[in-house]
Amino acid sequence: KILMCPEHETERINMYCELCRRPVCHLCKLGGNHANHRVTTMSSA
């Protein structure tokens, strides 16, 4: 099953924010609420 980002509906979730303990997409990481947070790949989470 492909998970889609709730904030960016057209983007797949492919990362996990370690600080917030939630999955995020690349747009969340690049310029969103998680820009300065440490993220890992979903396969490592």
Rank of each mutant, 00 (worst) to 15 (best):
H34P: 03
S44E: 15
C25S: 01
T40D: 13
V39S: 12
P6H: 08
E18Q: 09
G32M: 05
S44D: 14
R22C: 08
H26I: 00
L3T: 13
V24A: 06
I13W: 11
R21L: 08
L27A: 14
N33D: 12
R12V: 11
E18H: 03
C5R: 00
T10Q: 13
I2W: 03
R12Q: 15
G31I: 05
V24D: 02
M42Y: 07
L30D: 15
V24Q: 02
N14H: 14
Y16K: 06
H26S: 12
E9C: 09
V39W: 07
R12D: 02
K29Y: 11
K1E: 06
S44L: 06
S44R: 08
H26W: 03
L3R: 08
Y16Q: 03
C5L: 00
A35S: 10
V24R: 02
N33Y: 06
A35Q: 10
C17H: 01
C28Q: 03
L27N: 12
A35R: 07
M15E: 11
M4D: 05
K29G: 11
C25N: 02
H34D: 03
I13L: 13
T40I: 04
C28P: 01
N33I: 09
V24C: 08
L19H: 12
R38A: 13
E18R: 03
C28L: 00
C25R: 01
M42I: 04
A35N: 03
C17F: 00
E7A: 09
C20V: 01
M42F: 11
K1L: 03
L27K: 12
A35M: 08
E7D: 14
E18T: 06
Y16M: 15
L19S: 14
I2D: 12
P23N: 11
H8K: 01
I13V: 03
R38S: 13
N36K: 11
H37Y: 03
K29D: 15
R38K: 11
A45C: 02
N33V: 13
N14V: 13
C28Y: 00
S44Y: 05
H8T: 01
K29H: 09
H37G: 07
P6D: 08
H37P: 05
P6R: 07
C28R: 01
N33R: 09
V24P: 02
G31D: 08
L27H: 13
A35H: 06
G32R: 07
E7M: 06
L19W: 08
Y16W: 10
M15V: 03
E11S: 07
H37D: 05
V39P: 12
M15P: 03
E18S: 06
M4L: 06
R21N: 07
T10F: 03
T41C: 08
H34C: 13
C25K: 01
P23E: 13
P6Q: 10
E7N: 06
C17S: 00
P23I: 03
C25Q: 02
Y16C: 13
T10K: 14
L30M: 10
T40S: 11
E11G: 10
A45E: 06
R21T: 09
C20E: 02
L3I: 14
E9M: 08
R38P: 11
N14Y: 09
S44Q: 10
M42C: 10
G32C: 07
P6E: 11
C28I: 01
T40A: 11
C5P: 00
V24N: 02
T41E: 14
K1C: 01
R22H: 12
T10E: 10
L30C: 11
A45S: 09
L19P: 13
L27V: 10
L19T: 15
H37M: 03
T41Q: 08
E7P: 01
H37Q: 07
E9W: 03
R21A: 12
M42W: 09
T41D: 11
H26C: 12
H34F: 01
I2M: 09
T41W: 04
P6C: 05
R21S: 12
A35K: 09
E18M: 06
P23H: 08
L19V: 13
H34S: 03
M4V: 09
G31K: 08
K29E: 14
H8P: 00
C25G: 02
R38M: 12
R22S: 14
H26K: 03
G32V: 06
T40R: 08
S43R: 09
R12P: 15
E9L: 10
M4T: 09
E9R: 09
G31F: 05
H34V: 02
I13M: 14
A35V: 11
E18I: 01
Y16F: 10
C17K: 00
K29A: 12
H37E: 10
V39L: 11
A35C: 08
P23M: 05
H8V: 00
P6M: 05
C17R: 00
L19I: 13
T41P: 09
K29S: 12
E9N: 10
C5T: 01
C17V: 00
L30I: 10
T41S: 10
T10M: 10
Y16A: 04
M42L: 11
V39M: 13
M15A: 06
T41M: 07
L27D: 05
H26T: 05
R22V: 11
L3S: 11
H37W: 02
N14T: 15
S43M: 07
I2C: 03
G32S: 10
K29C: 09
P23C: 05
Y16R: 09
C25Y: 00
L27Y: 05
R38W: 12
L30R: 14
R38Q: 13
G32E: 15
L19G: 14
Y16G: 02
L19A: 15
K1R: 04
N33W: 06
T41L: 06
M4F: 15
M15L: 02
K1Q: 04
C28W: 00
A45D: 14
R38F: 07
C28F: 00
M42S: 14
R38V: 13
L30V: 13
K1H: 04
V39A: 14
H26P: 13
N14C: 15
C20L: 01
H34Y: 02
R38D: 14
N36R: 06
C28K: 01
R38N: 12
H8A: 00
C5A: 00
V39C: 09
K1A: 04
K29F: 12
G31C: 08
V39N: 14
K1P: 00
S43W: 03
N33G: 13
E9P: 14
R22F: 08
T10D: 07
C17A: 00
I2R: 04
C25E: 02
P23D: 13
T10H: 10
A35I: 15
L3N: 11
A45T: 07
H8N: 00
K1I: 04
T41H: 02
R22K: 14
H26Q: 14
L27I: 10
R38Y: 12
N33S: 13
V39E: 13
I2N: 12
I13A: 11
T10N: 04
A45Q: 05
G31R: 10
P23S: 09
L19N: 15
A35Y: 07
H34G: 04
C25V: 00
P23V: 09
K1N: 08
E7G: 04
V24L: 07
K1D: 07
C28D: 15
C25F: 01
N33C: 09
E18N: 06
S43Y: 02
L3H: 07
R38G: 15
T40H: 07
P23Y: 09
T10W: 04
E9D: 12
R38E: 15
L27T: 15
V39H: 11
H26R: 10
H37S: 05
G31A: 11
A45K: 04
V24K: 02
C17Y: 00
V39K: 14
G32L: 07
C20S: 01
M4E: 06
P6I: 05
S44I: 04
G31E: 08
N36A: 13
T41R: 08
N33E: 12
C25H: 01
Y16H: 15
R22T: 08
H26F: 03
L30Q: 14
R21Y: 13
R21V: 12
R21E: 15
R22D: 05
C20A: 01
R21F: 02
K1M: 04
C5W: 00
L3A: 12
M42D: 13
L3V: 10
T40P: 12
P23T: 13
N14S: 10
H34N: 02
M4G: 04
N36Q: 13
N33A: 14
A45G: 13
G31P: 04
M42E: 15
L27M: 08
G31H: 09
L19K: 14
H8L: 00
E7W: 03
R38T: 14
C20T: 02
M4Q: 06
M4Y: 13
S44W: 04
P23A: 09
R22Q: 13
C20W: 00
T40W: 04
K29M: 10
R12K: 03
M15Q: 04
N33P: 15
C28S: 02
C28E: 04
T40K: 08
C25I: 00
C20F: 00
L19F: 04
M15R: 03
M4S: 05
M4N: 08
S43N: 10
H8E: 01
P23R: 06
C28G: 01
A45M: 05
E9S: 14
A35F: 02
V24F: 15
R22Y: 04
C25W: 00
K1T: 06
V39Q: 12
C5F: 00
S44F: 04
